[in-house]
Design a binder for these strands. Structure first.
Lengths: 227, 227
DNA sequence: GTCTATAACTTGATAGAC
DNA sequence: GTCTATCAAGTTATAGAC
């Protein structure tokens, strides 16, 4: 309660300066957070006990309470970092694009970045998707603010695409956004790299949402791009 | 262990004959199952204790163990019934269609039936979607068989639609099916009847998956149907 | 078929030595 | 900053009376 909320997102382990390139193993508070994120993702929130986390860190529960005030404080931070990571990954990828990129390129880039953050060894992002529905309501309500900001970003992205490409005005971008994010996050439960790569998933989902399942009768704006 | 596995899906409460139209309140085993499904959906699997279920039923934990051998046995049955209900709802709706129906009608009917089963006061179906990721791995593995059967049904349905409507051969029906079911089930977390009706959701999702976001340049097979 | 009572265990959290 | 020891409460499950 007294502890200041530090910008823990990209904090380096204690004693690590910016110039040292080698990623040292996390310590103390950071190690606890990393371990909690991994266990939450693997076993769920309620099933993961503090003793469990402590044991994986090689410490006891007493030590954990020196860094965090409660289990809820840990999961709150894990959830927050999860959204921040995926959000930053998507924003950075889209920002790196040529500003004149067409809607297909923008959407594909954002979809692929989201999938990368979710499926590629990111305990925080996948823990967020998996345990959000398991944590107490009070924590969910506080976390909604963080999620909303990411959803708003997606909404603006879709609007930008809609203007650039002239989307069908009958489509509801709000519902589309929800369907899209649900389809993205759902992949966490069935994705396996040997069945389809992240690139394939991103390509397939983008084409599906832009063009649909039915065959396009010779279009003047379509089918020129194939990567 | 000794107890025979009855076809508990649509079983009527004891003492209820087929001709009595009034739905009597559930008793005994059925009441326990109904209550468990509701609490699992509301509070999650690990958070819902047997004392909790018993109290809501007006009995004690001792009584529960007369009807079920363990908590895992209860959740296994709740999960199974959840898939059976949604599966039967979708199959029945599609079967009631004119056999000559076009792909748009078939897909819309199946999507709407799935959403109805999931969102319209169905504790079992929504409990299944919500707690599947929370139950022990051993239970999940046993349950996969039930899920696979439903997913196979959807795959055949999409193939039938693809042949009827001539889908774009570049689309991957396997990935499409996964994206579609994820989009459907995800609605459980944000659906509110005052924002959009189930009919609107079904319409929007069907149009999106068939035609995509981009505008269709005058088609000969499209845009004739608007319900 | 429901109850009471309880065993055996795990949980989050705290107090205080070092 | 980490440890040991422990508390109070909650968990699943069982035994046996009625």
């Amino acid at each position: 309660m007294v502890k200041k909320q530090l910008s823990s997102q990209a904090r380096l382990p204690r004693g690590t300066s910016a110039k040292s390139a080698a990623p040292e193993p996390a310590e103390g508070r950071q190690l606890i957070l990393d371990t909690a994120a991994r266990l939450f993702r693997e076993e769920g929130y309620a099933t993961t006990s503090l003793r469990n986390i402590a044991a994986e860190c090689g410490v006891t529960t007493g030590s954990i309470y020196h860094h965090f005030g409660s289990k809820e404080e840990i999961v709150t931070e894990v959830l927050r970092i999860g959204v921040v990571r995926v959000s930053e990954e998507v924003r950075r990828s889209v920002m790196a694009l040529d500003p004149a990129s067409d809607a297909r390129t923008i959407l594909h880039t954002a979809v692929q970045a989201h999938l990368r953050a979710l499926l590629e060894l990111q305990d925080y992002t996948s823990a967020n998707v998996r345990i959000f529905g398991q944590v107490p309501l009070s924590i969910r309500e506080k976390h909604i603010i963080v999620r909303d900001s990411y959803e708003t970003y997606w909404h603006k992205l879709l609007q930008r695409c809609a203007e650039q490409a002239g989307f069908n005005p009958e489509r509801d971008l709000r519902l589309t956004r929800l369907f899209l994010i649900n389809a993205l996050n759902g992949s966490l439960e069935w994705y396996r790299p040997d069945i389809a790569s992240i690139q394939q998933l991103a390509h397939e989902l983008t084409e599906l949402f832009l063009d649909g399942l039915t065959r396009r009768p010779r279009s003047e704006t379509n089918s020129s791009k194939r990567k």
